[in-house]
Simulated assay, not measured.
Amino acid sequence: MRHNRIKELRTNQNIGVEKLSEKLNIPQSTLTRYENGNIEKGKLPIWQKLANHFNVSVDYLQGVDIENPSVTLKNDVPTEVIYKGKKYKVITNE
Rank of each mutant, 00 (worst) to 15 (best):
1 M>I: 09
2 R>D: 05
2 R>T: 05
3 H>W: 00
5 R>W: 05
6 I>L: 10
6 I>R: 02
7 K>P: 02
7 K>H: 14
7 K>D: 13
7 K>N: 15
7 K>V: 10
8 E>P: 06
8 E>Y: 06
9 L>S: 07
10 R>P: 15
11 T>W: 15
11 T>N: 11
12 N>E: 13
12 N>P: 14
12 N>I: 05
13 Q>I: 10
13 Q>H: 15
13 Q>T: 14
13 Q>M: 15
14 N>W: 09
14 N>R: 14
15 I>P: 01
15 I>A: 05
16 G>T: 10
17 V>D: 07
17 V>H: 12
19 K>Q: 11
19 K>F: 06
19 K>I: 09
20 L>E: 01
20 L>T: 03
21 S>T: 06
22 E>K: 05
22 E>P: 14
23 K>S: 10
23 K>C: 14
24 L>H: 10
24 L>I: 14
25 N>Q: 12
25 N>Y: 10
26 I>N: 07
26 I>G: 04
26 I>A: 08
27 P>V: 05
27 P>A: 07
28 Q>I: 05
29 S>C: 05
30 T>K: 06
30 T>R: 03
31 L>R: 01
31 L>E: 02
32 T>F: 13
33 R>E: 11
33 R>H: 12
34 Y>G: 03
35 E>M: 08
35 E>R: 08
36 N>A: 06
36 N>L: 08
37 G>C: 06
38 N>S: 10
38 N>G: 12
39 I>S: 10
40 E>N: 06
41 K>D: 10
41 K>I: 14
42 G>D: 06
42 G>W: 13
43 K>I: 15
44 L>I: 11
44 L>K: 14
45 P>M: 13
47 W>E: 01
48 Q>T: 07
48 Q>C: 07
51 A>I: 03
52 N>L: 11
53 H>V: 01
54 F>L: 07
56 V>H: 01
57 S>L: 03
58 V>E: 09
59 D>A: 00
59 D>G: 01
60 Y>E: 00
60 Y>Q: 00
62 Q>W: 00
62 Q>G: 05
63 G>A: 00
63 G>K: 01
64 V>G: 03
64 V>N: 02
65 D>K: 00
65 D>C: 01
67 E>P: 01
67 E>Y: 00
68 N>P: 08
68 N>A: 04
69 P>W: 00
70 S>G: 10
72 T>A: 15
72 T>W: 13
73 L>Q: 10
74 K>T: 14
76 D>H: 12
76 D>N: 13
76 D>C: 09
76 D>F: 15
76 D>K: 11
77 V>P: 02
78 P>N: 06
79 T>N: 11
80 E>T: 12
80 E>Y: 13
82 I>K: 11
83 Y>S: 04
83 Y>L: 11
83 Y>I: 12
86 K>R: 15
86 K>S: 09
86 K>P: 04
87 K>W: 14
89 K>Y: 15
90 V>I: 10
